[in-house]
């Protein structure tokens, strides 16, 4: 249960970062959503054996983290946490895909290994971009931006409630499992029986808590609309931000920049 707790605390920390005061934080959320979207599409659209051409995309997270003054190490650690899951998904690639791509000395590098590594890099890039988006925008502003970009309100409000519900659920889980641990006196808490009743209990409790929070929101004039504290509009800065990054991603996607640089270097030093 500790792990759930830390995961949620991390999520909360990410949310707190969104309160920062950098130029990136000040941008209209819609601009950041659009750029992140283009970034993810560009990264995901590469072929399965692509490696070299993905590397230049690291520049986006690196620049934003630097400009927005986000804790890079913390983010890196959080993003690294997903590596095992990705590896699990791509686990069988090297087994099934035995096509020989090239040799390093006597070692045969098969397509399977390359596609596994490519998958990991692409996942790290996309998840990193999503984290950075939340860390510089905040979830409420993010949902508001989605709404202003034309996603139906019904959907965005659901998303927000789901997000809040995660916190409620995690809090209640921690409380309940602590209560159980403290009273089970090292006997593993009476095993499955008490555990299953704990889970049932939890669902009811979180449900009730969520209802109470909802009524507290209604009591404070909530009518299905979230208002972000930051008032922003889509100005020149936003326009340049979107145009600049998108054209960079397009260029990287359409032309083999890293290949060209490679050729240039090998051309100079034959």
């Amino acid at each position: 249960m500790i792990s759930i707790n830390t995961a949620v605390i991390d999520l909360k920390r990410l949310e707190l970062m969104a309160g920062g005061n950098s130029p990136i934080h000040a941008l209209d959320a819609r601009a950041k959503v659009l750029v992140t979207f283009v970034f993810i599409v560009a990264v995901v659209s590469y072929g399965r054996y692509e490696l070299a051409r993905l590397i230049p995309f690291c520049i986006f997270p690196a620049v934003i983290i630097a400009l927005a003054d986000l804790p890079a190490l913390f983010l890196a650690r959080k993003i690294a946490l997903i590596c095992p899951f990705i590896a699990m998904i791509g686990f069988f690639n090297p087994v099934f895909d035995q096509t020989e791509l090239f040799r390093l000395g006597h070692v045969v590098i098969t397509g399977g290994w390359i596609s596994l590594v490519s998958l990991i890099i692409r996942s790290l890039l996309t998840v990193g971009a999503a984290f950075i988006l939340i860390g510089t925008t905040g979830f409420a502003a993010l949902c508001q931006a989605l709404e202003r970009l034309g996603i139906p309100q019904l959907f965005t409000v659901q998303l927000l409630f789901l997000y809040r519900y995660i916190f409620v659920l995690a809090d209640e889980t921690c409380r309940a499992s602590r209560a159980r641990e403290l009273r089970s006196c090292d006997k593993k808490g009476l095993g499955v029986v008490s555990f299953s009743s704990l889970v049932g209990h939890l669902l009811l409790r979180t449900w009730q808590q969520a209802v109470r929070i909802h009524s507290a929101m209604l009591a404070r004039g909530f009518v299905g609309q979230f208002h972000a504290r930051r008032q922003s509009r889509f100005g020149v800065a936003e326009f340049c931000f979107v145009l600049g990054w998108s054209s960079l991603f397009m260029t990287l996607r359409l032309f083999d920049i890293s290949g060209m640089i490679g050729k240039m270097v090998t051309g100079i030093f034959p």
Binding site: L16, A140, R164, I213, A216, G221
Partner: peptide
């Protein structure tokens, strides 16, 4: 339920 105390107190007035 908001991320910071300030946001939470601001929730009502914004609404």
């Amino acid at each position: 339920f908001m991320p910071t105390v300030f946001d939470d107190v601001a929730f009502g007035p914004l609404n």
